[in-house]
């Protein structure tokens, strides 16, 4: 069963959000940017939680949908000959990623378990190489992109705080939306599939369609996260689509807790912090990262979110 933060938990999350929102007042610009990275990671991992925690699907194609969301900004700016409006680029990114997820999902969801994992890996890597080996996305080294236009132009000195607040807002909206979704009959059906797929089918649930709907929605939300990454960094590269992005998001989910909706947000913040600390104290940062994650997973059976309820 997936739990979500109760009234007290949501209050704590809101408090944490307020602390993050106030960072421009007391933190260094570098750390404000780092916080944005963590928030984007939180969006990405949260979108994956809809598959892993809610439906019981482990996908390695998720990074590709994230990257497609980023590249949507580049493709739109190419097509328009300039920066698109964010009101065009954000829906565009979600549409592109969601459409790709519909196509991948329609085929991959015919398989189960390990084979589903491998099929999603294959489709994800196909999308990666599409941007890595063809000129469609501006080449394998990546490309600087014009940031989508917000309502008002943002002066350079204000970028870090404005993007931080924007990312915080998108993450909060995504969390609130998924929180509400898990309370609908659709959300309950997904939890049923995760708990016992064969029984759900025998009851008469159209399990394939429910799974596909979750896969498309999760893909579109990953696209939104990718879009925010492109907007924040003004740079896209094929690495954004790679399978290791999916693996990283899975780590965030695992670290934060598979059984809690807010787990991935905690996991993303924790992983970003671990990576940064590892970077500070040693050149072997991956080793530190690995050890920290291993310890966390061994010591916290239900992840950082713990076992609420």
């Amino acid at each position: 069963m997936m739990t979500s933060a109760g009234a007290r938990g949501n209050l704590l999350l809101a408090l944490g959000g307020a602390v993050v929102a106030s960072m421009p007042l007391w933190a260094m610009p570098y750390h404000v940017q780092l916080a944005s990275t963590a928030l984007i990671g939180g969006m990405f991992a949260l979108s994956l939680q809809l598959l892993v925690g809610a439906t019981g699907l482990v996908s390695l194609a998720h990074g590709a949908f994230f990257g497609l969301g980023s590249y949507a900004v580049y493709l739109l700016s190419q097509a328009l000959g300039g920066a698109p409006s964010v009101f065009l680029s954000l829906p565009g990114a979600m549409l592109l990623a969601g459409t790709a997820a519909a196509m991948v999902g329609a085929l991959a969801l015919r398989t189960q378990g390990f084979f589903f994992l491998m099929t999603t890996l294959a489709f994800g890597q196909m999308l990666f190489f599409l941007f890595h080996d063809t000129p469609i996305g501006g080449g394998m080294d990546g490309v600087f992109i014009p940031r989508p236009d917000l309502i008002w132009p943002v002066p350079k000195a204000w970028r870090a705080p404005v993007f931080l607040w924007l990312n915080l807002g998108v993450l909060a909206a995504m969390y609130a939306g998924l929180w509400a979704l898990m309370r609908t009959m659709f959300g309950h059906a997904l939890l049923g599939i995760r708990a016992n797929e064969s029984r759900m089918r025998a009851m008469g649930h159209d399990v394939q369609r429910l799974k596909l709907a979750a896969f498309i929605l999760a893909g579109a939300l990953a696209g939104a996260a990718g879009h925010m990454a492109a907007l924040t960094d003004a740079f896209v590269s094929p690495e954004l689509l790679g399978w290791h992005r999916s693996a990283e998001a899975l780590l965030m989910v695992l670290l934060g807790g598979i059984g809690a909706l807010h787990g991935p947000i905690l996991g993303a913040i924790a992983l970003t912090t671990i990576q940064e600390l590892g970077h500070l104290i040693t050149e072997r940062q991956k080793l530190v990262e690995g050890l920290a994650i291993l310890l966390a997973v061994l010591l916290l059976r239900h992840g950082l979110a713990g076992r609420s309820k």
Binding site: M1, H188, G192, N196, R199, M203, G204, H205
Partner: peptide
């Protein structure tokens, strides 16, 4: 073959929902 992590009521409710 039931959903052991869910309540008895939710098990039955999902049966009605499906139909």
């Amino acid at each position: 073959n039931v959903m052991r992590g869910m309540t008895v009521r939710e098990n039955a409710r999902l049966g009605t929902q499906a139909a």
